[in-house]
Design a protein around this nucleic acid. Structure first.
Length: 277
DNA sequence: ACGCCCGCCTGTAAGC
DNA sequence: TGCTTACAGGCGGGCG
């Protein structure tokens, strides 16, 4: 579910809701969400720790604690973080409940249980979590320099859609935003980086930056299934601006051709067969 | 080394 | 209506 814009929206919410607060108690249900370490260790290490800051790399949330631990959260397909108070009814699929000494709670709700939470430390992170250490550039954290983008791009051999979703290239792009970026850039999903003209490379660079920033501005994309909502349970507003994703059979807003849907590497992909070249 | 497909799960919607 | 099947925003592992 959540890609960079949705995770960034949650990060900003956590910055307001959690920084400076201390975990009074930690509840873990089931065996799926906390799976890299024992529940016992997770609960013991997290209880009593205070949140110093909330960061993000790609789709990972990184919560810095005063215990020098890092609480890492990845929502995968269906994970949600929800703000609550103890008397709120416990929603189905609530796997972790964090209660602050100040009274409020954070709840991790995840029907498909692909999401996870674990503790690591900055000094051992590269060993314990190699996928985190290998994340690529994140255009919302730091501007991607054009020259670096260009040299990195032509070094790759993967087709554009796959490449955009490769977290070691640009961190945070998934199926929705790869389609939106390619539409914006006017490029077909199966183009190879080396086939791009200089102008096309610049259009791709600009589309990555623009689409992700616009989507953050509108607090992410919530589709009909409402799987993504923010901390307060509020949907994002960016789906109304989608030009390609989930628009099969509808007219392209640039050239009026019909948007098509195609399986690309096992994923549904949407594009305009006329103006994406 | 790389690309592709599966599996991990549950919920929902489409298809028969 | 009810049963079955396909599919869903991610990602790692195993395969050829």
């Amino acid at each position: 579910m959540p890609e960079l814009p949705e995770v960034e929206t949650i990060r900003r919410g956590l910055e307001r809701e959690a920084v400076g607060k201390r975990f009074k108690s930690v509840e873990v249900h089931g065996t799926r969400t906390v799976r890299r370490q024992s529940k016992k260790e997770f609960i013991e290490r997290l209880t009593g720790a205070k949140v110093k800051s909330v960061k993000r790399r790609g789709k990972y949330l990184l919560i810095d604690l005063d215990s020098s631990d890092l609480l890492v959260i990845h929502l995968r397909m269906s994970g949600q973080l929800r703000k609550a108070v103890p008397k709120d009814p416990v929603e189905k699929h609530t796997h972790v409940v964090l209660t602050f000494t100040q009274g409020g709670q954070l709840r991790f709700v995840d029907p498909r249980t692909f999401g996870e939470m674990f503790l690591t430390r900055p000094d051992v992170m590269a060993d314990e979590v190699p996928e985190l250490a290998e994340l690529g550039m994140d255009p919302v954290i730091d501007p991607i320099p054009w020259v670096k983008f260009g040299t990195e791009l032509v070094r790759r051999t993967t087709k554009l859609k796959q490449l955009l979703m490769d977290q070691s290239f640009i961190a945070g792009i998934g199926n929705i935003y790869s389609d939106e970026i390619l539409w914006e850039a006017g490029l077909r999903h199966d183009r190879t980086p080396r086939s791009l003209s200089n102008m096309e490379m610049r259009r791709l660079h600009r589309a990555i930056v623009e689409i992700l920033h616009e989507a953050v501005k509108y607090r992410g994309s919530t589709l009909a299934d409402r799987q993504y909502v923010d901390l307060a349970g509020k949907p994002g507003d960016f789906a109304q601006f989608h030009q390609a994703y989930d628009r099969e059979g509808k007219p392209c807003r640039r050239c009026r051709s019909v948007i098509v849907r195609e399986k690309v590497a096992g994923r549904s992909s949407f594009y305009c067969p006329n103006c994406q070249i």
